[in-house]
Write a protein that binds this DNA or RNA. Structure first.
Length: 552
DNA sequence: TTAGGGTTAG
């Protein structure tokens, strides 16, 4: 029996609590007044607890554990807290505890959070188990249940299962429709998504924004803008989605224009604008935006600081780097969080402070894939290829599994440092131990590596064995190698291939012409120059293919 | 009795 009935004094105290300190005080009151078994009061406490300290799972769990016989409300609240902040395994052990010793039966409020936790990590098998449990509990007819299942199957790319849930629902609302539409969008089925968008009885902001996002992702910015204009009330999300779309398309003028149109800008929109400038190689602009933001007395979050650090890395300014670091130490920023730490390492290597980068890297509580890659790349930039390779193996020893990007980084390093045998070993490791199929970029790295070390024939054989469509980058690297090793015969074959795959690239003609010139084959040179002018190709001096297409 | 769940942006 509760000793007190939701003491109004404690309740009102609880409602004004904002910080952990406030909560500790209220908690002390709860314990002193013997209210630890008051379900209603503890429910309030748990809710406010996570609002104040979202990532702290331990504290609400401890308060919950003090309740002798928690009711279903309390179980569901704690379940949601775990689902949002704890690893999936923790959520499932809580779920087991609830079913085995909880003396309660899971209800329709229990499952949606669990399903959501499964979809956030695409845990298809686990989600199916929860789905089955929900069916056994007779809650699968609930709209929330259905919507979370549609979202889950959509995120796991099981669109057929999503449709089955959607079609089987007796009652659907805008959330269920939106979740299904997002499933179609993620599968690339624009027609089905558009049909749903047009046919659904009711739309909310999330619906409109999801459609805009899908159109942006498919590259159709014109229709995205049209839908945006048709939206009854545009919120920060809609603006930010379009800003991101323009940034990805390289149109920073349009992105900036959208940003300036926003009636109220939040941190996410500032961050989108900044990272747009960073992505488009305009670090100076990103730094300027950061200045504008600070002038408005806005407190940057970690995302924004990561963008600022990337901008600084591009600028290579050690002064700015030092300023950012001291700024972060003053504020409430957690510099040990993986993405922040990785950005710090990257910034310091690119601004020339390898000692600082190494110190930061070694002092991290745990090094993840991204921080390892930042450090490996840093060593590569500073010409310390051998150290980079041994760091790569240390990463594997520490149990961090390399992904495709990590292999690109290490292969590029080997290629820059001329570590041919090491590169070949890494390439074999990727295919034989990790069973990864190399991407065009990986092949390009290998061709570069073999080609630069003079093994042009081996490079040619590798590229011919590639089971995918020829990648211009790899062939281009090989042509470059043919030039530096004066292999006219192979150069001709490679160039022929390149003229097929990228006929617009004048650089390939120039390379071949240089190969001829170095072999004193002037007749071939003039032939080639003629073919170039016939095709209307012109090589801009000092400008690569990438530059000229970007400018166009 | 009061309280608890699902869709959209960096």
């Amino acid at each position: 029996m509760p000793l007190c009935h939701s003491s109004p004094a404690i309740l009102s105290l609880l409602k004004t609590s904002k910080t952990l300190r406030d909560l500790n005080q209220v908690h002390a009151h709860i314990i002193r007044r013997g209210c630890e078994q008051d379900h209603y009061l503890i429910a309030q406490f748990l809710t406010i607890c996570t609002a104040a300290e979202p990532t702290n799972v331990c504290y609400p769990t401890a308060a919950f554990n003090a309740v002798i016989s928690p009711n279903i409300y309390l179980w569901n609240i704690l379940m949601k807290i775990h689902c949002e902040n704890a690893p999936l395994s923790g959520c499932f052990s809580l779920f087991r505890r609830m079913r085995e010793g909880g003396n309660v039966v899971p209800d329709k409020y229990t499952f949606p959070s669990l399903i959501k936790a499964c979809s956030s990590v695409s845990a298809l098998r686990d989600g199916r188990v929860v789905h089955a449990a929900a069916v056994r509990c007779g809650t699968e007819g609930d709209v929330f249940m259905g919507s979370s299942l549609i979202d889950f199957y959509g995120k796991c790319r099981e669109i057929e299962s999503a449709w089955k849930v959607f079609d089987g629902m007796d009652v659907r609302n805008e959330v269920s429709w939106t979740a299904m539409m997002v499933g179609c969008l993620d599968c690339g089925d624009m027609d089905a998504a558009r049909k749903m968008f047009d046919e659904m009885p009711k739309k909310n902001d999330a619906t409109w924004n999801a459609m805009i996002k899908g159109l942006v992702k498919s590259g159709d910015l014109v229709t995205a803008k049209k839908v945006f204009n048709e939206m009854p009330v545009r919120d920060a999300v809609s603006f930010t989605t379009l800003i991101g779309g323009y940034a990805k398309a390289g149109d920073m003028a349009a992105a900036r224009f959208m940003f300036d149109q926003m009636p109220s800008k939040d941190l996410v929109s500032w961050s989108a604008l900044m990272s747009g400038y960073v992505q488009n190689g305009k670090p100076g602009e990103a730094v300027k935006v950061f200045g504008e933001m600070r002038a408005m007395n806005l407190k940057p979050d970690e995302f924004i600081l990561v963008s600022l650090m990337s901008a600084c890395a591009q600028l290579g300014s050690s002064e700015l780097a030092r300023w950012i670091e001291s700024y972060m130490h003053e504020g409430p920023y957690d510099t040990t969080r993986p993405h922040v730490a990785a950005a710090l390492v990257d910034m310091n290597t690119k601004c020339g402070d390898m000692a600082r980068a190494t110190k930061l890297f070694e002092e991290m509580p745990q090094r993840d894939l991204v921080s390892y890659c930042s450090m490996i790349q840093g060593l590569c930039i500073h010409g310390r290829g051998a150290e980079a390779v041994s760091l790569f193996y240390r990463m594997i020893d520490e149990g961090v599994r390399p992904d495709g990007v990590a292999f690109t980084v290490i292969l590029t390093t080997c290629s820059h440092a001329g570590l041919v045998d090491e590169g070949c070993r890494v390439f074999d490791l990727m295919t034989d131990k990790y069973f990864m199929s190399p991407s065009p970029d990986h092949y390009a790295c290998m061709v570069n590596l073999l080609g630069k070390s003079g093994r042009v024939k081996a490079a040619y054989e590798l590229i011919q064995s590639v089971p995918m469509d020829s990648h211009a980058g790899a062939w281009g690297a090989l042509l470059g190698a043919c030039r530096s090793h004066s292999d006219v015969e192979l150069g001709e074959m490679v160039a022929k291939k390149l003229f097929e795959v990228e006929p617009q690239n004048a650089g390939n003609y120039v390379l071949l012409s240089n190969i001829y010139a170095e072999a004193d084959r002037w007749l071939n040179v003039s032939d080639l120059r003629e073919r170039m002018s016939e095709k209307g190709l012109q090589k801009v001096p000092g400008c690569s293919y990438l530059d000229s297409t970007t400018l166009a």
